[in-house]
Design a protein around this nucleic acid. Structure first.
Lengths: 219, 219
DNA sequence: TCATTTATATATCGATCACTACAGAAAGGA
DNA sequence: TCCTTTCTGTAGTGATCGATATATAAATGA
């Protein structure tokens, strides 16, 4: 037994290494760039060359910092959720009624999907991801679960609305939640094709009329 | 000037060649297979190897018959439109009122997107195509135009409904058309993630309530 | 100073990408 | 039969894919 093998383990986490040559680039900024690229072009169509050129580093640096293309995509999904998705859902969680929650969700989605952020891709990164159909089963399952979150949140908000007496017990909770999920998903596709904020807000308005008719809401 | 160059031009059309070795495979069946693959995996993620293996031919045969991957994709889009998309829109065009047209469109979309056809991919090939974001500008524009057709058709049907007195002049035609386009697009995404026919039909039902509230329809 | 540790830059790796050169096979026309 | 035409099978083109081996640079600890 000579020198213990002592796996050299590169530094992949956010915390800086205690010893050794320091990283020469901003890991957070690199992750932001990667998120932007994956968001815009998708997983398959974004190459390692695209990433390293946009970030301004060599491929070994990228692999030392993030491990693999798949691992980087997973981190990018989390970065997207924390920095962009969270903004869309802020008013949903603070609104006083389920109706206000859902209306805020659709209106804020219309705003953020159509260029609210500076030069960011249009439409939701999770909704528009087709990585599951491209043969990457594990990543596909991850984004599929991410898409299901929208349904789960609206469904939970509806149930609490029923519990608080906002709606009668007879309201069809799953269908209403799925309707909102459908409209929000469709808005991502229209946003990517160039729909304006006003156009998507008009869509949200008609959607809320359907919501009101189904829930028995009186203005 | 010896032998005239006489471009040998391979036979890419449907009409059989008058002379020379006959094609050993069914071009229409090959196109159907290609459509299925492009529909399921998308343009980028579908390789020439995927195509030749599924069809059961060598790559030179594929190139002799279809020209290039891009040209094959364009043909596949037309094949999809003629064989699948057309079915979804049949009742839309035969219905007596604009309301019946739109309701039929959403219900038939719910049916065809969720496994009506044998072992076919779920959701609309055109709606789910992200070839435009993958760097293929020309193909991207083609599918974007294909997606705009849905809006144009609903908009035209609404206008004729206004002309026939089905709706008052004050009805917001573009917003209603865009709302239907949004719902139909979102249904493709939900269908790909596994939504059932009944679930999508329930979504269509809520959507029609929004339509009715906006158009002033009384049941 | 010098060993250890970690990151960087250069130069690849084998695999796969879309695509094709080439030669032979299979048809019709003469 | 022989020529022309077109398709097929083999084998490969250069380019790019994701990922890495290697050597060196830059930091800390002793």
């Amino acid at each position: 037994m000579q020198k213990s093998p002592k796996t050299p383990q590169t530094q992949k986490s956010t915390t800086p290494a205690l010893r050794g040559r320091p990283r020469a680039f901003d890991r957070e900024a690199a992750l932001a760039q990667a998120t932007r690229l994956f968001w815009h072009k998708g997983y398959e169509a974004t190459s390692i060359s695209d990433l390293t050129e946009a970030i301004g580093i060599g491929s070994p640096s990228l692999y030392a910092a993030f491990g693999s293309k798949e691992a980087l995509y997973v981190e990018a999904l989390h970065y997207y959720g924390d920095h962009y998705q969270a903004l869309v859902w802020a008013r949903f969680f603070s609104a006083g009624t389920a109706r206000e929650s859902v209306e805020s969700l659709l209106l804020d989605a219309a705003a953020t999907m159509t260029g609210c952020h500076n030069d960011m891709p249009r439409g939701c990164m999770v909704t528009l991801s087709s990585v599951g159909s491209e043969g990457h089963t594990e990543l596909g399952e991850l984004v599929r679960l991410g898409r299901a979150v929208a349904f789960d949140r609206v469904e939970a908000r509806l149930r609490s609305g029923v519990a608080e007496g906002e709606f009668p017990d007879s309201v069809d909770v799953p269908s209403l939640a799925r309707f909102i999920q459908t409209v929000q998903s469709g808005m991502s596709l229209l946003a990517r094709d160039g729909a304006s904020r006003a156009e998507l807000e008009a869509v949200a308005e008609v959607a809320m009329l359907g919501w009101d008719a189904r829930t028995g809401y009186r203005a």
